[in-house]
Design a protein around this nucleic acid. Sequence first.
DNA 1: CTGACATTGTGAACGCTTACACAGAATTCA
DNA 2: TGAATTCTGTGTAAGCGTTCACAATGTCAG
Lengths: 213, 213
Amino acid sequence: MQNTKAHVSKATIKRIPLYYRAVVQLQQEGVARIRSDRLSEIIHIPSATIRRDFSSFGELGKSGYGYSIATLVEEFGQLLDVDSSESIILVGVGGLGRALLMNNFRRNPDLNIVMAFDADPTKVNTRIGGIPVYPFATLAAHMNPNIHTAILAVPSASQTGVIGTLEAFGINAIMTFAPQPVACAPQTTIRYIDLTSELQSLLYTAHQKAKAR
Amino acid sequence: MQNTKAHVSKATIKRIPLYYRAVVQLQQEGVARIRSDRLSEIIHIPSATIRRDFSSFGELGKSGYGYSIATLVEEFGQLLDVDSSESIILVGVGGLGRALLMNNFRRNPDLNIVMAFDADPTKVNTRIGGIPVYPFATLAAHMNPNIHTAILAVPSASQTGVIGTLEAFGINAIMTFAPQPVACAPQTTIRYIDLTSELQSLLYTAHQKAKAR
DNA sequence: CTGACATTGTGAACGCTTACACAGAATTCA
DNA sequence: TGAATTCTGTGTAAGCGTTCACAATGTCAG
């Protein structure tokens, strides 16, 4: 009952993609329904958390039955807006940028890197993984108002400047691999992927565990 | 006073690498001391959080003065064990694996990928970024008991099997880019880097923000 | 249709993390 | 030296997220 517009917590938002991936997988396997405790075994998230998360999007399940896979795919697909394809630009075509271009989220047809930019003249005016690479200076000429998302794989030192430029051209969602913290406009959302930090904190945790025995 | 052995929370652990990076940077700039509110501006973490975190490692600061950079570098360096160099293996030399080899955490001399493995015969018995690449089948021959850490950049489907093998050879810390959840041994610590999920939840958040105006 | 059963959705308790706000400790400067 | 100032470390409270546990609801077999 009720649940017209529950608040969706940040923690829940981070799990939506996991839920979506799992239910799509199940659908492909021909599964028609799933219980929260069974799903829990698959994605290693406690069943109570799953039910609480799901309930924040409405009454998706049925008592004594579980959840219909079709309903879940539909619901999470809508939440993630998978029907409207997202055009993404990549800035920085070093080793990592190249890897992202080659891969280009192939598993998710709605996520598309449509072009890339780099300041290095030797790397531009070519194609990598079928995606054109342009000089960063020509950003203005290639940008269009439907693009709001950028992935950054540039050196930390360049990052602040690049982000300022991107914001000026309408980018408001940025995923970056440079850990340099940036003060950005309030309408911009930034996600930092800090591989070194992740590795270091992983090692710290692992060492502590080893010491404890 | 007191504070002989405070508990270090998970949230704090994740921030240690950020603190370490910042204080090393400050040291290189010749800064000798720092206040929590100044550090807060640099790394965008509230000063109260910084003080609480720091205090969980002992009384690092001095009232009316702040923290000595040298003390912090020393303390966090010790926590992260930067003096004893960590030997890491990489499994999976696709685009991403290659990028990691080329980069090899160059900024952190204590983090070293020392060799790589791949099942694809066309990719092995060569060097990338100076690091040798061996057939995965020869893991046993190349492993040594000082190696406890692996980075995985293999397809999701291969992951479970690979992790089982790695655990058998003494690996207990794993950072992986395949989102496939794995049930692993209790002494193993796994960190998942799920770029697609990160991007999707970033987009969800950005879209919500855009809708709200 | 009925009763036995299965499973959700959620109130309430809990634990972890952040944020506030200030006493007290140490510094700094005259 | 002493007074004014600075800034930490932490008690306390608030906020967030997870987990428990079960009433309510709906399923399903006969």
